[in-house]
């Protein structure tokens, strides 16, 4: 276990250094990630003028979006398509370590480059994030990050069966957009949409930490939300492990 953590740490270090070499492009993908939460902020501020809770929520959502950004369709799927997965397979460490390392490296850069954007959005929108509630949301951000990674990883594994892994991941992102709290804060939806949305995994990946930071979830609802989040993490991780085992048997690298 300790060895695994050390390997992940080393991988984050190596990957983030290599990501730094294409930093100007990194800034553009940070902008790309920020666009849907910012649009949500603008549209909902126009729909409900003077509602400071909705602006606080969307500023928190922007931060969560950057901290949970996942690109496994680029790192993992493209490795499957161009055969570089073969090289990762013969290394004396699980393949997933480098996928995690590059994911976390990217998220660190996303947060660093995104901080000015978050700060500007917070000031312009008049977001009021309470320090205590922000702290309360931190574990949820970590679980959301893990959950979104596992979900994207799972969809990216479709590259072992089809040429359209990018489309599959895109489909997953559409679901996260619609049901995860970007299209609308789930708390603003009528029943039964709200309860259904809260039980699905997408809200646990994105909207939940933002709602906690904005102070819209308390008490029993909070612990229930954490339970749902952890439950989905266990289910999706188990599923990803099974799919990886089954899919790997199909893998045949290209080239000599």
């Amino acid at each position: 276990m300790i060895r695994m953590l050390r390997l992940v740490g080393l991988s984050i270090w190596r990957q983030s250094l290599s990501q730094w070499s294409w930093r100007s492009f990194l800034i553009t993908i940070v902008i790309g990630q920020s666009v849907t939460p910012l649009l949500g902020l603008l549209v909902w501020s126009a729909a409900l003028p003077g509602d400071s809770q909705v602006s606080t929520y969307y500023v928190a959502l922007l931060a969560v979006q950057l901290m949970t950004a996942s690109y496994e369709h680029h790192t993992l799927s493209n490795g499957i398509y161009d055969g570089t997965l073969a090289r990762a397979l013969v290394q004396p460490q699980p393949v997933v370590i480098d996928v995690i390392g590059s994911n976390l490296g990217l998220r660190i850069w996303h947060l660093i480059f995104g901080l000015p954007l978050i700060a500007i959005a917070a000031v312009v929108a008049g977001a009021q994030i309470d320090v205590y509630e922000g702290m309360l949301a931190l574990p949820a951000v970590v679980i959301a990050g893990a959950l979104r990674f596992v979900f994207t990883y799972l969809l990216a594994l479709s590259a072992l069966w089809t040429e359209r892994a990018h489309g599959v991941v895109g489909l997953g992102e559409t679901l996260i957009f619609l049901l995860g709290g970007t299209a609308a804060p789930l708390g603003y939806l009528p029943e039964p949409f709200r309860s259904v949305g809260q039980a699905l995994p997408f809200w646990s990946m994105l909207g939940l930490p933002a709602e906690i930071a904005a102070g819209t979830i308390h008490g029993a609802a909070l612990s229930q939300a954490y339970a749902v989040q952890l439950g989905w993490l266990v289910v999706l991780t188990a599923l990803a492990a099974v799919i990886w085992r089954v899919g790997l048997r199909r893998f045949a690298a290209v080239g000599a």
Partner: peptide, 29 residues
Amino acid sequence: VFELVLTVVGLAASIAALGMIYTRTDTLG
């Protein structure tokens, strides 16, 4: 077929997102 599914889902999501906003307001700008 897959392309068609992607398009329909994407468009349906955009319309649903608009619908969600209009549950809380009558006009937007």
